[in-house]
Amino acid sequence: MTKPHLLIVDGMALLFRSFFASAAMNQFIRLEDGTPSNGVQGFARHVLTAQNLMKPTHLAVCWDMGAHTFRNDLFEGYKANRPAPPEEMLPQFDMAKEVSQMIGWQNFGIPGLEADDLIGSMIEKWKDEAQITVISGDKDLLQLLNPSTTIAFTKKGYSEYDVYTESRFVDEYGITPKQFAEVKAFMGDTSDGYPGVKGIGPKTALQLIQNHGSIDGVMEALPTLKPGQRIKISENEAMLRLSHQLATIHCSAEIEVGLESLRLSSYTTDLFDIVEQRGYRLISKHARSIY
C-alpha cells in the first residue's frame, strides 16, 4: 500500500522570500483598498506550484507566532539583530494565513515556538505513516532528515528546488542529520544571533563533529586538540552548550490533529472565484492555469 505524501510548508520562509523578491522592484501588487499583497500572492503561488510538481496527498502550513519564543528566554540576543519587517509586509502575515485557509490548507502555529519546531514535531509524529517533503529556505532543517523525509530548499523562481535526502546529506557532510545541530553549536549563526565558539568556523566545526561525534566527544578529546582550538573551546564552553540548545529543533510539540485531517481536496472553479473576488487575482489566474 502506498504511503500518504505529506507536504509541510514553511510558511514564513515562503512569505518572506516572495515579499522581498518583488519588493526589491517596488512591485507590491496592492489590493483595491491599497493593501500590499505581493508576499501573500507569491506564497500562494509557490504552494500551488509545489502541489502541481510534487503531487502530495496531504498538506500543512507552519508559521511563527510572533517574534518571542522560548529561545529568547534562553538567550536575550537570539535574533535580536534582525531588522523589523518593512511596513508593507506587516498586514501580510495575517493575510497569508487567511488565504491559506481560504484555499483549504491547514495552518499551524504555537506561541513560543518557531515554525521549525512544528515542522520537526510533525515529522516526528508521522515519519512512520507518511512520505514527507518539507519546503523551506532554512538549512537548519537539515537536522530533521530521515529515511522518510526530504527537504526541498527554494532555489529559483517557483519551481526549482535543491532537494536533500538523508543519504545525500550523509554523503556530503560525513555526519548524521541529528549531528548537524552540534556543528551549528560550534560555528554559531549570525542570522539567529548566537555566536557559538568564537574563532571556530564552519569547516572546523564540521571536522570536530566528524572526528569526535558530539560536543561531549570533543570535550573529552580536548587535550588532544590543537592549542588554539583547545583554548577557544574551553573558554567558550558555556556558550557552546547554550548555542546547541538554540540550534536544536524541538520535536515534541503537541500536534492535535490526525494525519487524515490534512488530506487535500480537489479544487473547484467556485473556490478560485472566491479568491479572485477577495482581490487575489494573480493567485486565481495561476491556480486556474494548473488545475
Score class of each variant (00 low, 15 high):
residue 2 T to M: 14
residue 5 H to P: 11
residue 12 M to Y: 10
residue 21 A to C: 11
residue 22 S to V: 02
residue 22 S to R: 08
residue 22 S to T: 15
residue 23 A to F: 11
residue 24 A to Q: 12
residue 29 I to N: 12
residue 29 I to E: 04
residue 30 R to A: 15
residue 30 R to H: 09
residue 31 L to S: 13
residue 31 L to Q: 07
residue 32 E to I: 05
residue 38 N to T: 04
residue 41 Q to M: 08
residue 43 F to C: 02
residue 44 A to K: 00
residue 48 L to P: 00
residue 50 A to V: 00
residue 51 Q to C: 11
residue 56 P to R: 03
residue 56 P to M: 08
residue 59 L to I: 15
residue 60 A to H: 05
residue 62 C to R: 03
residue 64 D to S: 11
residue 64 D to F: 11
residue 65 M to Q: 13
residue 66 G to I: 13
residue 66 G to C: 10
residue 67 A to L: 12
residue 72 N to D: 12
residue 78 Y to C: 03
residue 80 A to H: 07
residue 80 A to D: 06
residue 85 P to F: 03
residue 86 P to V: 13
residue 87 E to A: 13
residue 88 E to G: 12
residue 90 L to W: 07
residue 91 P to A: 14
residue 93 F to P: 06
residue 94 D to V: 09
residue 99 V to Y: 00
residue 99 V to M: 13
residue 100 S to A: 15
residue 101 Q to D: 15
residue 104 G to P: 02
residue 106 Q to K: 15
residue 109 G to K: 05
residue 109 G to P: 04
residue 112 G to L: 07
residue 113 L to G: 00
residue 115 A to K: 05
residue 116 D to Q: 11
residue 116 D to C: 08
residue 120 G to F: 02
residue 122 M to W: 04
residue 124 E to I: 07
residue 125 K to D: 12
residue 132 I to V: 08
residue 133 T to I: 05
residue 134 V to D: 01
residue 135 I to Q: 01
residue 140 D to L: 10
residue 143 Q to P: 09
residue 144 L to I: 06
residue 151 I to A: 05
residue 153 F to W: 07
residue 155 K to E: 11
residue 155 K to T: 03
residue 156 K to T: 10
residue 156 K to R: 15
residue 166 E to H: 07
residue 166 E to Y: 14
residue 167 S to T: 12
residue 168 R to P: 02
residue 169 F to R: 02
residue 174 G to T: 11
residue 178 K to T: 10
residue 178 K to N: 12
residue 181 A to N: 00
residue 185 A to N: 03
residue 188 G to N: 07
residue 197 V to C: 03
residue 197 V to D: 01
residue 198 K to Y: 06
residue 198 K to Q: 10
residue 201 G to Y: 02
residue 204 T to N: 08
residue 207 Q to M: 09
residue 212 H to T: 00
residue 213 G to N: 08
residue 218 V to G: 00
residue 219 M to Q: 11
residue 220 E to S: 10
residue 222 L to M: 10
residue 223 P to N: 14
residue 227 P to I: 06
residue 231 I to M: 06
residue 233 I to C: 06
residue 236 N to L: 05
residue 237 E to D: 06
residue 239 M to I: 13
residue 242 L to I: 12
residue 242 L to A: 08
residue 243 S to M: 01
residue 243 S to N: 03
residue 246 L to S: 04
residue 250 H to Y: 14
residue 251 C to H: 03
residue 252 S to Q: 14
residue 255 I to S: 08
residue 256 E to H: 13
residue 259 L to W: 13
residue 260 E to G: 12
residue 261 S to C: 11
residue 264 L to E: 03
residue 264 L to T: 10
residue 264 L to Y: 05
residue 266 S to M: 08
residue 268 T to L: 10
residue 271 L to D: 06
residue 272 F to M: 08
residue 273 D to E: 14
residue 276 E to W: 02
residue 279 G to F: 05
residue 282 L to H: 07
residue 284 S to W: 04
residue 288 R to M: 05
residue 289 S to I: 09
